[in-house]
Amino acid sequence: MTANMIARMLDCGEQALIVEFGDSIDPAINARVHQLARRLNESASTGILEIIPTYRSIMVRFDPLVQRREDLKKEIAEQGASLDESSTSVQGNITLIPVAYGGEFGPDLDFVANHNGLSPQEVIELHTATPCLVYMLGFTPGFPYLGGMSPRLVTPRLEQPRQRIPAGSVGIAGAQTGIYPIESPGGWRLIGRTPLTLFSPRSPQPFLFAAGDYLQFAAITSEEFAAIAKEVSAGLYTPQVRQIPQGGPDVHGA
């Protein structure tokens, strides 16, 4: 079944427009965002410079000296009219993210456990149980805004943000979970760390995953962390990526 699900198109200066699908954070809306983003990227339409998918909308940057706004809008509307309405037909990948939980890697694991009346082991099991949807990337290069964390892990941010959070740190802020790709300040509760490099600016493939993909965390020991870290820095590590099974992964997006 197909339907036109574009809610509106908004101007964003002379070189961009915003294609909106809705006003909320919703995996079905986000699936439409990524479906249209993929089509626009593949269409190689003249004048389109860049497609930026976010939670519920897409920014389309274009060269107005090559492509008129009204023509572009018409073209996008046509693409939008033929989107696949069965929203779970995501074509992304599931990237496995090995994480060493607790200890020096996750100094707030015990806090998250106590706050939710769980044992640290239960926190780890819940955090690794299901894939998380990468709604979008932003904040810093490669930072994933993830959906799909268990509601039993919801924990408020730190009252006083840390000045330096090591790259690879995995944290929780409210109902969100995420990974810090580069060292930065931040207020998320840190429960673990991945030895993977999420952002390698000099590599031909600078990013481990894209918006619309899924991540699944997998618990590793500190010995495995050291071994993987060594392979990563030698450029020998290949992240494990699974194709999403037909009909979508068994997840809840928000």
């Binding site: 964003c12 200066g13 070189q15 961009a16 915003i18 006003d23 909320s24 954070i25 930026i52 976010t54 939670y55 519920r56 909308s57 897409i58 920014m59 940057r61 979008m136 932003g138 805004y145």
Partner: peptide, 11 residues
């Protein structure tokens, strides 16, 4: 506040 979306120089 809105549900975060894309920014560009000039926004």
């Amino acid at each position: 506040d809105i549900v975060s979306d894309a920014l560009c120089p000039g926004s």
